[in-house]
């Protein structure tokens, strides 16, 4: 390893740390909501404190329980979203690329929602 390699590694780590810190401090204090979008368009917004099961068309099924959302079932072959850990923090998301389904945790304060569509 040359000295330049270490500088490069340090720079990449620094960038990662800055983004991570930014994400950490961006966390809102408001109610945590789960926003599901399909193909870039919002499919629905759900309360993270309400235990529920959401069917997204015939392709995916999201379960919200114990304050966290997870992809319970998907018809895609890779099952990456199903293996993804449950999300609960603001900004965290589960993405099912084949079906273009994005499940994101958002803060009600930040997004400025005045009503929750169930």
């Amino acid at each position: 390893m040359k000295r330049n390699d270490l500088i490069l590694a340090g720079a990449i780590l620094a960038v990662a740390a800055v983004i991570l810190a930014f994400q950490f401090f961006r966390q809102g204090n408001g109610e945590q909501l789960v926003e599901i979008s399909v193909d870039g368009e919002v499919f629905g917004t759900y309360d993270l404190t309400d235990d529920q099961t959401i069917k997204i068309g015939n392709t995916n099924r999201v379960v919200i329980e114990d304050g966290a959302a997870r992809m319970e079932w998907a018809d895609c072959p890779d099952q990456i979203c199903v293996n993804h850990r449950a999300v609960s923090k603001n900004g965290e998301s589960i993405i099912c690329l084949p079906n273009q389904v994005v499940v994101t945790v958002v803060s009600s304060e930040e997004s400025g929602l005045d009503a929750v569509a169930q």
């Binding site: 590694a9 990449i12 983004i19 993405i95 273009q100």
Partner: peptide, 27 residues
């Protein structure tokens, strides 16, 4: 590509993890 396909910047949430992972596996 993932950002373009799903039309959301939220994918960027993975960036720090993927940067560090790429660094380690690349090394």
């Amino acid at each position: 590509v993932a950002m373009i396909v799903v039309e959301t910047y939220q994918v960027g949430y993975y960036l720090p993890v993927l940067l560090v992972a790429g660094l380690i596996t690349g090394a």
